[in-house]
Deep mutational scan, measured.
Amino acid sequence: MIINNLKLIREKKKISQSELAALLESSRQTINGIEKNKYNPSLQLALKIAYYLNTPLEDIFQWQ
């Protein structure tokens, strides 16, 4: 199971779900699903999230 700190990191950087979704060329619903652990992002999307949040991938997503 993958757990994530996306919501915590996103809020700390003062970025809304909609703003992050626009940067990622994704939907706000996708970001919401990832944050609620209802959806696991593809590797490509996970890497883009890490890039746009300027945060190491392993700080956002962790195996448990």
Rank of each mutant, 00 (worst) to 15 (best):
Ala21Asn: 01
Ile31Tyr: 02
Ala50Trp: 04
Ala21Val: 03
Ile3Lys: 13
Lys14Thr: 05
Leu43Asn: 06
Lys36Thr: 15
Phe61His: 00
Leu24Ser: 10
Glu25Tyr: 10
Leu24Met: 09
Asn37Pro: 02
Lys36Glu: 15
Glu19Arg: 14
Leu57Arg: 01
Trp63Glu: 02
Glu35Pro: 02
Leu57Ala: 02
Arg28Val: 15
Leu24Ile: 15
Ile3His: 08
Ser16Leu: 06
Ala50Glu: 02
Glu19Lys: 13
Ala22Met: 12
Ile49Arg: 00
Ala21Trp: 09
Met1Ser: 04
Gln62Arg: 10
Ile60Val: 07
Glu11Gly: 05
Ile34Asp: 01
Phe61Pro: 00
Arg28Leu: 14
Ile15Lys: 04
Asn40Pro: 12
Ser26Leu: 15
Ile49Pro: 00
Ile2Val: 12
Asn5Cys: 12
Ser27Phe: 04
Ile31Asp: 00
Lys48Asp: 06
Lys12Met: 14
Lys13Pro: 00
Arg10Glu: 03
Ser42Val: 04
Gln44Ile: 10
Glu35Lys: 02
Met1Val: 09
Ser18His: 10
Leu45Glu: 07
Ile2Thr: 11
Pro56Gln: 08
Tyr51Glu: 10
Gln62Leu: 08
Lys14Glu: 08
Leu57Ile: 11
Ala22Lys: 14
Asn4Leu: 11
Ala21His: 03
Ile3Val: 14
Ser42Tyr: 04
Ala22Pro: 04
Ser18Ile: 11
Ile9Glu: 04
Lys38Ser: 10
Ser27Gly: 06
Ser18Arg: 13
Leu20Ser: 06
Leu24Glu: 00
Arg28Trp: 15
Trp63Lys: 03
Lys13Val: 08
Leu45Ser: 01
Gln64Ala: 14
Ser27Val: 04
Glu58Ala: 12
Ile9Tyr: 09
Glu25Ala: 12
Gln62Cys: 10
Asn4Ile: 11
Gln29Arg: 13
Leu53Val: 03
Arg28Thr: 15
Tyr52Cys: 13
Gln64Asn: 13
Ser42His: 06
Ile2Asn: 07
Leu47Ile: 13
Gly33Trp: 13
Ser27His: 08
Leu6Pro: 00
Asn40Cys: 14
Ser26Cys: 15
Lys14Trp: 06
Glu58Pro: 10
Lys36Pro: 02
Glu35Tyr: 05
Lys38Val: 13
Lys12Trp: 08
Ile3Gln: 10
Asp59Asn: 09
Ala46Gly: 08
Leu45Gly: 00
Gln29Val: 10
Gln64Ile: 07
Ser26Phe: 07
Glu11Ser: 08
Gln62Ala: 09
Lys38Ala: 12
Ala21Gln: 02
Met1Thr: 07
Trp63Asp: 02
Gln17Cys: 06
Leu57Pro: 02
Ile2Leu: 13
Ile34Tyr: 01
Ile9Pro: 01
Glu25Met: 12
Leu53Ile: 02
Lys14Pro: 01
Leu6Ile: 03
Tyr51His: 12
Ile34Leu: 06
Tyr51Ile: 08
Asn32Gln: 15
Ile49Lys: 00
Ser27Ile: 07
Ile9Arg: 04
Ser18Leu: 10
Asn40Ser: 14
Ile31Phe: 03
Gln64Tyr: 10
Thr30Cys: 15
Asn4Glu: 02
Pro56Ile: 04
Tyr39Gly: 04
Ala21Leu: 04
Ile15Trp: 06
Gly33Thr: 08
Leu43Trp: 11
Pro41Trp: 03
Ile3Leu: 13
Asn4Ala: 03
Met1Lys: 05
Gln44Ser: 13
Leu45Thr: 06
Gln17Arg: 07
Leu47Glu: 13
Pro56Thr: 04
Asn32Tyr: 08
Ile31Ala: 01
Ala50Leu: 04
Ala21Lys: 02
Pro41Asp: 01
Leu20Ile: 02
Lys12Leu: 13
Gln62Met: 10
Ser42Met: 03
Arg10Ile: 05
Asn32Ala: 15
Phe61Asn: 00
Ser18Glu: 14
Pro56Ala: 08
Ser16Lys: 08
Leu47Cys: 15
Ala21Pro: 00
Asn5Ala: 07
Ile49Trp: 00
Lys38Gly: 07
Leu53Ala: 03
Glu35Gln: 02
Phe61Thr: 00
Ile2Cys: 14
Phe61Arg: 00
Asp59Cys: 14
Leu23Val: 11
Ser18Trp: 11
Ile2Gln: 07
Asn5Val: 06
Ile3Tyr: 08
Gln29Met: 10
Gln29Tyr: 10
Asn37Gly: 15
Leu24Gln: 00
Ala46Ile: 05
Glu19Met: 11
Leu8Asp: 14
Gln17Trp: 06
Leu6Ser: 01
Glu19Ile: 09
Trp63Arg: 03
Lys14Leu: 09
Ile34Arg: 00
Ile3Met: 13
Lys7Glu: 10
Glu11Val: 10
Ile15Tyr: 08
Ile60Tyr: 03
Tyr39Lys: 10
Lys13Tyr: 09
Thr55Ser: 08
Asn37Trp: 10
Glu11Thr: 10
Arg10Phe: 07
Phe61Gln: 00
Asn40Gln: 14
Asp59Pro: 04
Leu47His: 10
Leu20Trp: 03
Leu53His: 02
Ala46Thr: 05
Leu45Cys: 12
Pro41Ile: 08
Leu6Met: 10
Asn40Trp: 11
Glu25Asp: 14
Glu25Leu: 11
Lys7Asp: 03
Gln29His: 13
Phe61Cys: 03
Lys7Tyr: 05
Lys14Tyr: 06
Tyr52Asn: 05
Ile15Asp: 00
Ile34Thr: 01
Ala22Asp: 11
Ile49Gln: 00
Gln62Tyr: 06
Gln44Val: 11
Arg10Trp: 07
Asn37Glu: 06
Thr55Glu: 10
Met1Pro: 11
Lys7Cys: 11
Leu47Tyr: 10
Asn5Pro: 01
Pro41Arg: 00
Thr55Trp: 04
Ser42Ala: 05
Tyr39Cys: 15
Leu45Ile: 08
Leu43Lys: 11
Asn32Phe: 05
Ala22Leu: 12
Leu53Asn: 00
Ser18Gly: 13
Ile15Gly: 05
Asn54Leu: 06
Tyr51Arg: 09
Leu57Val: 11
Ala50Ser: 10
Pro56Asp: 08
Ile34Pro: 01
Thr55Gln: 04
Pro56Tyr: 05
Leu53Tyr: 02
Leu43Arg: 12
Asn37Ala: 08
Lys12Tyr: 09
Ala46Phe: 04
Ser27Thr: 14
Lys48Met: 09
Ile9Trp: 07
Asn40Tyr: 12
Thr30Pro: 02
Ile9Leu: 09
Gly33Ile: 08
Ser27Met: 04
Asn4Asp: 05
Ile60Gly: 03
Thr30Ile: 15
Thr30Phe: 14
Lys48Ala: 09
Tyr51Ala: 09
Glu35Asp: 01
Lys12Asn: 12
Glu25Ile: 07
Tyr39His: 11
Leu23Ile: 10
Lys14Val: 05
Asp59Arg: 08
Leu43Ile: 12
Ser27Tyr: 03
Ser26Trp: 05
Lys48Ile: 07
Gln29Thr: 12
Asn32Met: 13
Pro41Ala: 03
Ile49Cys: 03
Lys36Phe: 06
Glu35Cys: 05
Asn5Phe: 08
Glu11Pro: 04
Ser42Gly: 09
Trp63His: 02
Leu47Trp: 08
Asn32Arg: 14
Pro41Ser: 02
Met1Trp: 06
Phe61Met: 01
Leu57Met: 09
